[in-house]
Design a protein around this nucleic acid. Structure first.
Length: 990
DNA sequence: CCTGCCCCATA
DNA sequence: GTATGGGGCAGGA
């Protein structure tokens, strides 16, 4: 045992208290599992713990006196039962047993603490948190500074002027300000908030319906828990008042459970925690015994001790793996392969190109489906490729076959940030391999640890490039845009290709998802290995480079195999179902176009957004105060539930409606109506909502998407997400950047061109109404568009017989609503809602509209009938939008699908038109020798970045390509109008 | 930590 | 009345 020393704590000392227990769990869950190489003893948490402790000691050393610990201890929980169980027997009752491979590590960590020559403290009947609170209090009272190394939020109540927390994983310091950020109240009121909100992890009951946000509001208003409970009668919201009264005792018990004891009768005196002289040999012996090579080296380097001369310590636990369990040996039931094995006869048969052979399309469909299923899917049958010879053999095989399925494994879902980890290939059903390239040993913590045996990445890619760019080899991938982005970063431009996701989308949009797992289930009756099964989930999740290579081979090989088979099933269907043109002209060519747009990204002005965020926050705070004033109480304006209680419960305002779950409706239209009646509060809530929406969704979120390497924001476009053919944009969604309000447009101004460049925005004017005029062949609409008239005014004039000149804006507004309603598959109910008029009045408008535009009524009826008869509708370019359940389900659901079916050809044709423009755009710009780059698409708008001096050359090309996009496939009966403008930012260009 | 709900930004 | 994606809140694993 180390000699006990006692240096009483005095002013200016710095006491470090490490929460051992929470750290064990944290290290266990956050870090990849790790076992001792020689005998499989699980040591991941011990390893993480030692790294943290060593770093803590070294940092303190290097940071000099201010941060140097004079006293240091690691505090543990003693056992599960504590004094809190006497207060409440259910306390922590639902906590599961620790995982099997964590249990032996509790003892090991105590050994580790001894090896560091640091005191380890625990006491029966108390939790580590209580001991920490006690020591912290004692030290602070003596004028010392205290740092609590812990991540447990329960300890935040201890934070104060001289007591701060430090999160060992996030390396973040937590002072009173951070506590307030988390709990909405200062450290002194954390327990009150916890008492109200409860804690499901610790099984602290709290008060139902009250979360942290609400609890903080209440405590801020009433001061503390006891005052709140005594004045609970004053609470205005009936439900909450009742809960607070009924569960008052629960809240009091919860407070006692949450409150940490700062007067524990500790057995070890605070002074005994004084930092002791290190004993490097002992620490090195322990680390060597645990086989922590990196830490051993670090300790040896830092202390000047020769590690080779230190004998490894005997570490007491040896019982792993458990009896009867498997050893650590990788499975060795497959002979190592030195060359590519011969194909089986089945594989040879099945690898025929499904669409290439003779015979009718339907015969090809059957042949493809049969071929895809004739070899069973066996994930253990894939070959791991670790030599150049084997790789070359696979590449040769793929070249000979002429078709190869390809899939990449990477470290991230974000293709702009992902690092390549491996590539899998399939040359036929069941005939797949995996080429690991960037795997690391799962003991990735030990930097520089040996890399598993793999082909060197650049060498492998040099050879794969030949295959992937070979014009004679068709590459098949599922969602190729992702892999394309990965490969292009390595200088590989994949072509030619097929994309199974897009095949499925062209064939079956609206019939279900187009993800690989779903396609595998649908077409192969096969459930693929889940990503979570190889990489773990939640806290245990690791990036793919840490997945063991044999497991990765099963997973990645299966992906390529399944992709190949799905292609065999779907590709022949294209011709048979007359969707080959759609796929080849509207889907497949979009992949490189969108990939390049995503890769370019767009610059945002972060300073501008940051200023805006501040402005919005300030304005919202002022509004919030006024709202609370008007309400006569403080509440969470962001909670529709609480707002509803105030408006319709407390204030008893009219127009109360309930949603289907029984909550008050507080949507914008309801608040607008109330505001129109002269109520002040709803108007302010609307303004508040606008500001907080703009702040949380845009000014605060967007800077987080700036790619650190490019300094730009790269959205991701989904090609197969909608039923109509529209794209969608996510992470971030750049298709919903505000534009309607002045405040919102300030956000749009933050999307800027680079220096010396301009942003050009080009958008189709009224494209959907023009498409409608074409499809429904409506003479008045066609004429109006030909003459360049105001289409909504013309509609109003037709309907109500008033001249366009000097028209009442209200009349025009109604006509505009009707025009939009038509596109959306109008109903009297919806139109009435939109215009806030009686349903009968809306029905009259619609009737009148159809009298004036009978062709449109015919279109709507014909479309519905077609959809019911066939289960789908088509756009003018032949894209198919499926509504398989349009004849099933409840009448209201059917009506919904009918409206969608009416809308789909209009929305979808417009989507097709802009797709065609996008596909041609790059070539046309190149031919015109204009350096414009297409950055964004927002359904009817394209945004380009153009060198300032070529703007005037670029705009005519852009406009022409967009206007002529339907040609030659379709000659629209109305002209397309495109407006384009250049400016320094998106707002002014739009 | 994930899910459903409500609300809201765009075309 | 169409098509999306996403944030905050509250509840339950």
């Amino acid at each position: 045992m180390p000699k006990t020393e006692n240096h009483p704590v005095k002013s200016g000392d710095h006491v470090f208290l490490v929460d051992g227990s929470s750290y064990i769990f944290r290290a266990y869950h956050a870090l990849p599992p790790l076992t001792r190489k020689s005998d499989g003893l699980p040591i991941g948490a011990v390893h993480g713990f030692c790294q943290m402790l060593w770093k803590l000691l070294r940092d303190a050393e290097e940071n000099g006196d201010a941060d140097k610990p004079t006293h240091l201890a690691v505090i543990f929980d003693y056992s599960a039962k504590t004094f809190r169980n006497e207060i409440y027997d259910q306390y922590k009752a639902h906590r599961p047993e620790p995982p099997e491979d964590l249990r032996p590590q509790f003892g090991l960590i105590r050994e580790a603490v001894k090896a560091f020559n640091v005191p380890g403290i625990e006491l029966e009947g108390y939790e580590a948190d209580d001991l920490i609170a006690t020591y912290a209090r004692q030290a602070a009272d003596k004028g010392a500074t205290v740092t609590i190394v812990a991540s447990d939020k329960d300890l935040m109540q201890v934070v104060g002027d001289h007591i701060e927390m430090m999160d060992p994983m996030k390396e973040r310091r937590i002072g009173p300000a951070e506590v307030e950020e988390k709990f909405g109240v200062g450290p002194e009121h954390v327990v009150d908030v916890q008492a109200l909100a409860g804690d499901s992890v610790d099984n602290i009951p709290g008060v139902p319906g009250i979360g942290v946000k609400t609890a903080a509001q209440l405590i801020l208003e009433y001061g503390d828990l006891e005052s709140l409970l005594q004045r609970a009668e004053e609470i205005k919201q009936p439900k909450r008042r009742q809960n607070l009264i009924e569960h008052a005792d629960n809240a009091r018990i919860s407070r006692r459970l949450a409150e940490l004891k700062s007067d524990v009768p500790v057995e070890t005196d605070l002074g005994e925690l004084s930092v002791r002289a290190p004993e490097p040999e002992r620490l090195i012996a322990f680390c060597k015994g645990m086989e922590f090579t990196t830490i051993t080296k670090r300790v040896a380097d830092a202390t000047g001790v020769d590690a080779a001369k230190v004998e490894p310590a005997e570490v007491p636990f040896k019982y792993w793996p458990p009896e009867g369990g498997e050893g650590g040996e990788p499975k060795a039931d497959r002979p190592a392969k030195t060359k590519v094995a011969e194909k089986t006869e089945d594989q040879r048969q099945a690898a025929v190109q499904p669409a290439g052979g003779p015979g009718s399309p339907s015969a090809a469909v059957e042949a493809g489906a049969a071929a895809a299923r004739c070899v069973p899917i066996d994930s253990s049958a894939y070959e791991m490729v670790t030599t150049l010879d084997v790789l070359d053999a696979w590449i040769a095989e793929a070249m000979t076959a002429g078709v190869v399925a390809v899939d990449t494994e990477t470290t991230s879902l974000d293709a702009m940030q992902a690092e390549l980890v491996g590539v899998s290939l399939a040359t036929g059903p069941g005939r797949a391999c995996y080429i690991p390239l960037g795997h690391r040993a799962s003991e990735g913590l030990d930097f520089g640890d040996d890399r598993p045996e793999q082909i060197e990445m650049s060498e492998a890619l040099k050879r794969l490039k030949v295959l992937l760019e070979n014009p004679g080899t068709l590459k098949i991938a599922q969602n190729l845009k992702y892999d394309w982005l990965i490969f292009i970063r390595h200088g590989i431009d994949v072509a030619p290709f097929d994309d199974t996701m897009l095949l499925s989308y062209a064939l079956d949009a609206g019939r279900g998802g187009n993800g690989m797992d779903e396609l595998s289930r649908r077409w192969l009756d096969h459930e693929p290995i889940k990503y979570a099964d190889v990489a773990g989930t939640g806290r245990n999740k690791v990036t793919f480079d840490l997945v063991p290579i044999d497991r990765a081979t099963e997973y990645a090989g299966e992906d390529a195999d399944v992709t190949y088979r799905i292609w065999q099933v779907l590709k022949p269907r294209l011709a048979a179902e007359h969707l080959a043109t759609v796929y080849e002209t509207l889907e497949r060519p979009m992949v490189p176009v969108l990939a390049r747009m995503e890769r370019r990204g767009i610059t945002i002005d972060r300073a501008m957004l940051s200023r805006l965020s501040g402005d919005f926050a300030q304005a919202a705070a002022a509004l919030e105060a006024e709202i609370h004033d008007l309400a006569g109480e403080s509440f969470n304006v962001g909670s529709p539930k609480q707002l509803g209680d105030i408006l319709f419960g407390k204030m008893g305002l009219p127009g109360a409606k309930k949603t289907k779950t029984g909550a008050w409706t507080t949507g914008a239209s309801v608040l607008e109506d109330l505001a129109a009646e002269g109520h002040e509060l709803p108007r302010k809530v609307l303004d508040w909502r606008q500001l907080s929406k703009l702040r949380s969704t845009y000014t605060d979120a967007l800077p987080g998407y700036v790619n650190p390497e490019t300094g730009r924001v790269h959205t991701s476009y989904a090609l197969a997400a909608t039923t109509t053919g529209r794209l969608s944009s996510s992470e971030p969604n750049l298709q919903n950047i505000p534009v309607r309000t002045e405040e919102g447009r300030r956000i749009r101004k933050a999307f800027v061109a680079e220096k010396g460049m301009k942003l050009v925005s080009a958008d189709y004017s009224q494209i959907e109404l023009r498409v409608l005029a074409h499809i429904a062949d409506t003479p008045q609409l066609k004429q109006a568009f030909d003459d360049g008239l105001d289409i909504h005014a013309m509609t109003a004039s037709e309907m109500f017989g008033v001249p366009v000149k000097g028209m009442d804006p209200m009349i025009r507004r109604r006509a505009k609503a009707i025009n939009f309603g038509i596109i959306y598959g109008i109903s009297a109910f919806g139109l009435a809602n939109q215009l806030s008029i009686p349903r009968q009045e809306a029905a009259d408008y619609i009737k009148r509209y159809f009298e004036r535009f009978p062709g449109i009524r015919d279109y709507m009826e014909d479309t519905k009938a077609f959809a019911r008869a066939h289960g789908y509708v088509t756009t003018i370019f032949g894209r198919r939008c499926n509504y398989p359940n349009i004849t099933k389900g409840h009448p209201s659901e059917r009506a919904f699908m009918e409206r969608a079916a009416i809308n789909a050809p209009i929305q979808g044709s417009a989507a097709d038109i802009i797709r065609r423009a996008m596909i041609r755009m790059e070539d046309e710009l190149r031919k015109a020798r204009v350096k414009a780059e297409m950055l964004l698409q927002v359904h009817d708008e394209l945004i380009f970045e153009v060198p300032e001096d070529t703007v005037d050359d670029a705009i005519p090309v852009i406009v022409r390509v967009m206007q002529e996009a339907p040609l030659p496939a379709v000659s629209l009966k109305v002209p397309l109008q495109v407006d384009a403008r250049a400016a320094d930012n998106w707002d002014e260009a739009h």
